[in-house]
C-alpha cells in the first residue's frame, strides 16, 4: 500500500488542511469557552440547596452523557430549523459542542469545589463571609487549581469530538481529509494526514496541561485524565 502513497497529493492539499486546522482550532476554542460558561452555570445549579435546580442540572448532565454526541448534533441540526431557528452549520456545531462538553465541565467544576475541605467553608462562615464572598475568596481560588488539569483533558476530548462537525459539512480538519479521500480516492493520504494534525493539537494541549500543572505547583501525576 505504501508504494503508491502520494506525498505529492498531500502537499498539494496542504493549504486545505491548513485551513481546516485553523478552523478546528478556533471553533474548538469557542466551543470550550461556551462549555465553560455552560459548566459553571450547571455546577452552580448542582450545588444549590434548592432541589429543583439540582434535579434540572442532573437531568441535563445525564441526558448529555447517556446519548451519543452525533445524535445530539443531528438533534440540533435538524431540530433547530423546525423551531424556526435557521443557523449556519458552524454555529450549530459550536452550540452542540458547548452544550455537550459543558455537561462534563460541570462535573469537573463540581468535583473541584467539593474537593475543598469542609473546614475551609466553616472558616469563611465563622468570619462572617456571605455565600458569595466565601465562593469568591476562599473556595473558587482553591478549586480553580484542582480543575485546570482535568479541564485541559476535557479540551483534548472536545478537539477530537469536533471532527463530527464534518458530518454537517463544516470545513474543519476532518472535512479536509474527507475531501482529499473522495476527490482523489485517496483515503489513506487524507486520514493519515488529519491524524497527524490531531496528534499535533493533542501534544500542544498536553504541553499546556503540563505547563499549567507546574505553574500551579501541582503534582504532574495528578494531571492525568
Amino acid at each position: 500500500m505504501l508504494e503508491n502513497f502520494s506525498f505529492r497529493t498531500i502537499i498539494e492539499y496542504l493549504p486545505l488542511f491548513g485551513q481546516g486546522l485553523i478552523t478546528t482550532v478556533w471553533l474548538s476554542a469557542l466551543s470550550f469557552a461556551g462549555a465553560l460558561a455552560v459548566g459553571i452555570v450547571l455546577a452552580a445549579m448542582n450545588l444549590q440547596r434548592g432541589r429543583l435546580f439540582r434535579i434540572a442540572a442532573k437531568a441535563y448532565i445525564d441526558a448529555v452523557r447517556a446519548t451519543p454526541l452525533l445524535a445530539q448534533l443531528y438533534f440540533l441540526y435538524f431540530g433547530l430549523p423546525r423551531l424556526g431557528l435557521v443557523l449556519p452549520e458552524l454555529v450549530v456545531g459550536i452550540i452542540a459542542l458547548s452544550l455537550n462538553s459543558g455537561a462534563y465541565v460541570a462535573e469537573i467544576i463540581r468535583a473541584g469545589i467539593l474537593s475543598i475541605p469542609r473546614g475551609q467553608v466553616e472558616a469563611g462562615v465563622a468570619s462572617g463571609m456571605t455565600y458569595v464572598q466565601r465562593m469568591r475568596l476562599v473556595i473558587l481560588p482553591q478549586a480553580f487549581k484542582v480543575t485546570i488539569p482535568p479541564l485541559l483533558g476535557q479540551a483534548i476530548v472536545l478537539v477530537k469530538d469536533s471532527a463530527l462537525l464534518s458530518l454537517i459539512s463544516v470545513s474543519e480538519l476532518t472535512r479536509a481529509g474527507q475531501l482529499l479521500a473522495s476527490d482523489r480516492f485517496m483515503p489513506a493520504e487524507g486520514f493519515i494526514t488529519i491524524a497527524a494534525f490531531y496528534l499535533l493539537l493533542y501534544y500542544g494541549l498536553k504541553g499546556l496541561a503540563a505547563l499549567s500543572s507546574r505553574w500551579l505547583g501541582l503534582q504532574p501525576a495528578r494531571s492525568s485524565t
Binding site: 475541605p117 473546614g119 475551609q120 462562615v125 465563622a126 462572617g128 463571609m129 482553591q142 487549581k145
Partner: peptide, 20 residues
C-alpha cells in the same frame, strides 16, 4: 447571623487556615 458572626472569633482544632 452574618453580622453577628463578625463579633465572634472561632478557632478550630485543625486551624483551617486558607492555604492559598
Amino acid at each position: 447571623m452574618t453580622q453577628l458572626r463578625t463579633e465572634i472569633g472561632f478557632v478550630f482544632q485543625s486551624f483551617n487556615l486558607y492555604p492559598h
